[in-house]
């Protein structure tokens, strides 16, 4: 399996798609932060409203409220938006689909299947390399969000518990990301078609939590005491708090991560084992 992993690392290093994905994510984060800065300058009257297409409405500003747009937000909220709000999961879903399904596109998987390795070890290598890549993407998104935020808002806004909260939040999110990327890797293995894989993954990222919430309401109406959203990965990612992460939150995240990692790994492995290449 070491040989297989070494080849995966080499492909990763040579993957232009990864760098494009990483750069796109970082650029998006920088652009969003810059738009906040621009809105703040417009609000404070330093720049004319409408500059670069950004219009700030001040009608809703209540008396006594700060006129600074940036005062109303903090870095952790933005980190939460990027990591837990579907931004990083979208990039991860797209790249992992390309990563896994790309093996089938031009038949490169034929160069490793039937070469003395068990199919289980081949799938495991792909699965774990997908997780590793998703963690790197997540970490890059966090670093870009925090550093750009600090550059835009200044370090004076960093509270004493900021790094502690940030580390705890990112730690839980990275753990959940393992299960999420595993699910996407399994979807890639099942579909083996780039359009279908990306389409299903985007649907999963964008709509599945709403669907889970809908099921919660349905169960509630039926007087069934079961919340799907408490166990579905994208809901848990979205609902992870940015402050006061306690043992209950961590315990629940660990349980959900283990559950979905095991399910996706098992399903993907069985499919890869039985399906023809």
């Amino acid at each position: 399996m070491n040989n297989l992993f070494s080849a995966e690392l080499y492909k990763w290093k040579k993957s232009r798609g990864f760098y494009v994905c990483l750069l796109s994510a970082v650029c998006c984060i920088v652009i969003i932060w810059l738009s906040f800065l621009l809105a703040d300058r417009i609000e404070s009257g330093q720049i004319e409203n409408g500059t670069m297409g950004i219009t700030v409405s001040q009608e809703t500003l209540e008396e006594g409220q700060s006129e600074s747009f940036l005062d109303a937000i903090d870095i952790m909220q933005i980190v939460q938006t990027f990591i837990g709000g579907g931004f990083s999961t979208l990039f991860i879903a797209i790249f992992i689909c390309i990563w896994v399904i790309g093996e089938y596109g031009k038949g490169a998987v034929k160069n490793v299947v039937g070469k003395g390795y068990s199919r289980n070890s081949i799938f495991l290598t792909k699965y774990f390399s997908s997780i590793l890549i998703s963690l790197v993407l997540d970490i890059a998104i966090v670093i870009a969000s925090v550093l750009t935020g600090m550059a835009v808002m200044g370090t004076a806004r960093i509270g004493e518990n900021f790094f502690k909260d940030c580390l705890a939040y990112v730690g839980v999110q990275l753990m959940l990301s393992v299960a999420f990327s595993g699910i996407i890797a399994a979807i890639g293995e099942f579909t083996r078609n780039l359009a279908a894989g990306i389409g299903i993954s985007i649907l999963l990222t964008a709509l599945s939590s709403t669907f889970a919430n809908g099921l919660d309401l349905l169960f509630k109406a039926m007087h069934i005491d079961f919340r799907v959203s408490a166990y579905w990965i994208t809901n848990v990612i979205e609902n992870c708090p940015i402050e006061g992460i306690n043992i209950d939150v961590v315990g629940s995240a660990i349980a959900v991560t283990i559950m979905w990692t095991v399910i996706s790994l098992f399903a993907g492995m069985v499919h890869f084992h039985e399906a023809d290449v």
Partner: peptide
Amino acid sequence: ELQRKRIGCLIEEPGYY
């Protein structure tokens, strides 16, 4: 499967990146 280490194959079209 272990004996397949001794096989080289080109089936359908070559697999490449």
